[in-house]
Write a protein that binds this DNA or RNA. Structure first.
Lengths: 204, 204
DNA sequence: TCCATTCTGTAATGATCGATACACAAAGGT
DNA sequence: ACCTTTGTGTATCGATCATTACAGAATGGA
């Protein structure tokens, strides 16, 4: 029913990926329609026909980021045999991703929507929600480790998860400031240095 | 020589403080001239006569932030008797400042200029430089501790400083996401949990 | 008192923003 | 071949952005 009319002359998925990179580098407010259409190789009306509006395009780009770049980073959480290894690999994957040449440094989601006034409410909310969900993934992995007996019963999984998520967010800023892979790895190692003490603490 | 002509009808320092709060909450790009002049209680020509342009106003506001809010946070570095206590107090002061009711959450400097394209180059550079200088303050305190014998000779002061600065940057994002004082303190405690291991490591 | 100087408020500047009106092109269905 | 439907390119929309012309108001100095 929808294969009538003139066919689209560009690859929607490819255009979305290009838009994602622009948003990643410049942020929502820094990515002008002019910059977006130039990078996507299309004109404004095509963008609006295919994606709705800038806000909707951003939300799609954010999801694409989460499902491509994000997946690389978070995959370790589910494949590593122990929680400690999972968090360690997660941080090292972060260090690697954030210093990857050819892509913007730091995380689209961590660095986006930090100034409410500069961004539509829905975008700000979606970004905050994503950050929360990521913290939650860490927490769930830690809780699984408690259930499996790797970690002591009573370890505050939420607190530990918040700590590692926060370190990762800081790594985005470090990456934006030009921090090298070594600098990022150093932070990852530093955070893992807290593991022993953190997983000894119990909820009071 | 300059007390000729019609006197200024507003308090420049007060207006700058109000502008600082707007930039703090909204960021450079989110703070429109309309919002700035409204908060400052003056009209655009008065703003331009007193501060030059938006970019110059931002740079002044940033310096004011560093010398007021910033000083509260960094004071501990110089007053605490040991480096460990200095860093610990620094992180706790951060947790307190970033959750202070009545002020925007998180740090103006940590959260500013993270998207180059959305901000004048000079602003972006000044913010990055400030973040670097802050890391340097930590490093210098750690090096002093090495010189004094508190820390082992060979501890990588730069690496430890980068770790704690990065954690603090992450705390700004946590604060923006509504993280409570308890959540922020929890991160501070987590970072301090790494102290023992970090200060055992030596440069290879 | 009159002038030079500086500030204030109104109102407007050109530039850029996100978003579209419109006419034409390219496809399928009949 | 014709109609319907949808995408494309040009050119433009009103809104908002940062910035400023301009005329009047308020001061000190002559």
């Amino acid at each position: 029913m929808s294969d009538k009319g003139r066919p689209r002359s560009f690859d929607r998925a490819d255009a979305l990926m290009r838009a994602m990179k622009v948003f990643w580098e410049k942020g929502y407010e820094g990515a002008s329609l002019t910059a977006l259409t130039a990078a996507m190789g299309i004109n404004a009306p095509s963008l609006y026909a295919a994606f709705g509006c800038k806000e909707a395009l951003y939300l799609e780009a954010m999801e694409l980021y989460a499902q491509t770049v994000g997946t690389d980073i978070w995959a370790a959480l589910e494949t590593a045999p122990t929680a400690r290894e999972a968090v360690s690999r997660f941080l090292l994957a972060t260090a690697e991703a954030y210093s990857q040449p050819g892509t913007p440094h730091g995380c689209l989601i961590a660095l986006g929507g930090l100034h409410q006034a500069a961004v539509p409410e829905a975008v700000c909310d979606a970004l905050t929600r994503h950050r929360m969900e990521n913290t939650d993934k860490l927490r769930q992995r830690l809780e699984a480790a408690i259930a499996e007996g790797e970690l002591r019963d009573g370890v505050d999984a939420g607190a530990v998860a918040t700590f590692y998520a926060t370190v990762q967010h800081g790594m985005s800023i470090l990456a934006r400031d030009g921090g090298s892979y070594e600098a990022l790895k150093n932070v990852a190692d530093g955070a893992m240095a807290a593991w022993g003490v953190l997983t000894q603490n119990t909820v009071p």
